[in-house]
């Protein structure tokens, strides 16, 4: 609800506002074909992407936070403190942890190991800006933005030949297509299949159409203009599961890693271009 509060403020004088937007709505529906409306929404998104992406401000936040939390000792798979291109090869198997980890899970592990934080403290840091709008700048979002942007221009390259990674990929795929929760919903309900699925004028990407999973995940963290902050992949998972009425999503959980293994594995070959921007 908080997220809608900003807009609600601007429709103050509810009756008038309501009337006028009803009218506007009717006009849009009446005058434009769905194809025309979709084209115009794409034009809106293209205009949003011009200029400086406010999400880039988080890069500097992350640069400072990495020093503060001792993360220059963090090994993302290419050696301690080697971050260029490191995010592009995640998720991968980490012998020191004895498991497969994606970027965010690995950062959480490093925060425990190198910054002496407990798991609870890490999760609190991860969720600091969840549900907030306007001006919430979290160091965690900064760290993930910094580490991802250090891989900009690198192609996603998840090693699916590693049996441990492949196992998580398979579990992730199952979770993606699993119908659970009171609404019998899954990720695939919206984001799978050869047939096009739309919500209003937005054409939804599908994991089953070549290149589309890549386009979707390669721009995370994605700056969301309606909340004024960047959304990391785990925040995205949490929001999707909340909307699907699934049990509460726990960041850095095996479920998150499995989904990342499936999505980033499917996205192999796509260039990382963070941050993206969207509504």
């Amino acid at each position: 609800m908080k997220k809608k509060a900003v807009l609600a403020l601007f429709t103050a004088g509810a009756v008038t506002g309501g009337l006028l937007s009803t009218k506007a709505f009717a006009q849009v529906e009446g005058e434009l074909t769905p194809e025309q409306e979709m084209k115009l929404v794409q034009e809106f998104n293209r205009m949003l992407a011009e200029g400086i992406n406010p999400g880039e401000v988080w890069y500097e936040v992350g640069k400072d936070a990495i020093k503060k939390y001792n993360l220059d000792k963090c090994d993302l798979g290419l050696g301690p403190g080697v971050f260029k291109g490191a995010a592009a090869q995640l998720p991968r198997y980490f012998a020191d942890a004895g498991k497969v980890m994606d970027l965010e899970t690995r950062v959480g592990w490093c925060l425990q190991k190198h910054a002496g934080m407990t798991q609870d403290q890490v999760l609190k840091l991860v969720r600091q800006c969840w549900g907030k709008t306007g001006n919430c700048v979290s160091e965690y979002d900064g760290i993930i933005m910094y580490l991802t942007m250090e891989s900009n221009g690198h192609k996603i390259n998840v090693n699916l030949k590693d049996p441990q990674v492949k196992r998580m990929y398979d579990i992730g795929r199952q979770a993606y297509y699993a119908r659970i929760g009171p609404w019998d919903f899954n990720c695939a309900t919206c984001h799978a299949g050869k047939q096009e699925v739309r919500i209003r004028a937005t054409r939804l990407w599908s994991a089953d159409r070549p290149g589309e999973a890549g386009n979707a995940v390669s721009i995370f963290p994605k700056y969301l203009v309606r909340w004024g902050l960047p959304m990391t992949m785990h925040y995205r998972y949490a929001e999707c599961m909340r909307q699907m009425r699934w049990p509460e999503f726990i960041p850095h959980s095996d479920l998150a890693v499995a989904l990342s293994a499936y999505l980033y594995g499917t996205a192999n070959g796509t260039e990382i271009k963070a941050p993206g921007i969207g509504r």
Partner: peptide
């Protein structure tokens, strides 16, 4: 000259 500034820009509410 392009710029981005972090600020809530919140109206009275």
């Amino acid at each position: 000259v392009q710029m981005v500034i972090t600020h809530p820009m919140s109206p009275p509410r």
